Simulated scan of single mutants.
Amino acid sequence: MSALPHSLTIGDLAARTGLAVSAIRFYETHGIVKPVRNAGGHRRYGRADIRRLSFAMIAQRLGFPLSEIAAHLTALPDHRAPSRADWTRISDGFRSQIDARIGELERLRDKLDGCIGCGCLSLASCALYNPEDRVAARGPGPRLVLDPD
């Protein structure tokens, strides 16, 4: 494929996104961006790749694994800016997961002070939050935080 019109070098893309060149190459190996090669064999990126990389950086900061981010981005068209409909489709996929994470964080925030405040730090022996270890029946792990009330 020939170079894109209004293409960016990897250095240009690094300057625009704040990513190191090596990070951009890493994202490339995961299919987040797909450069084309010019006649000299150099990578050229489209302006839409700024959005792709920015989205990936934000989603990673929110704790989404790169494989999941890449899977969502494969639905976007290559070498053109995504449309509003494209982004809506992706955001719908993330919205329910983000809402669930917000709920988990709120439960953790609301219960953390009490647990640390009592000093026992053990939900198995805490008479306040988990008398007689009743929560064990709901499964392993921190069920009081993970499970909605």
Rank of each mutant, 00 (worst) to 15 (best):
A48T: 06
A85D: 00
R52M: 13
R44N: 02
R51S: 15
R84T: 15
G63V: 07
R80W: 14
G31K: 04
G40V: 00
F64H: 01
R47V: 14
A48L: 07
D78Q: 14
P65S: 01
H42R: 04
A56M: 05
P82K: 14
Q60G: 09
R52K: 13
G46S: 15
V36M: 03
P77C: 14
V36I: 01
K34Y: 11
H79I: 03
P77G: 14
H42S: 14
S83V: 08
L66Q: 06
M57E: 05
F55C: 08
R84A: 14
H42D: 09
I69F: 00
A39Q: 12
A39M: 06
K34D: 04
R37W: 08
A85F: 00
A48G: 07
R61G: 11
M57N: 05
M57A: 13
F55A: 14
H72A: 02
A70H: 01
R61A: 05
D78P: 08
M57G: 04
P35W: 11
G41S: 10
V36F: 00
Y45I: 00
I32R: 02
I32M: 05
A75G: 15
R44Q: 10
R84L: 14
A39N: 07
Q60W: 00
L53P: 03
R80Q: 15
R52W: 09
H79Y: 10
Y45Q: 00
A75K: 02
S83G: 12
V36K: 03
R80H: 09
S83D: 15
G63W: 08
A48K: 12
R37A: 08
P65N: 12
A75E: 11
R43M: 01
S67M: 08
S83F: 03
G46V: 05
L53E: 01
R52F: 11
Q60V: 01
R80G: 05
G41T: 12
A75L: 10
L66C: 04
H42E: 05
H79Q: 06
G41N: 06
I69V: 07
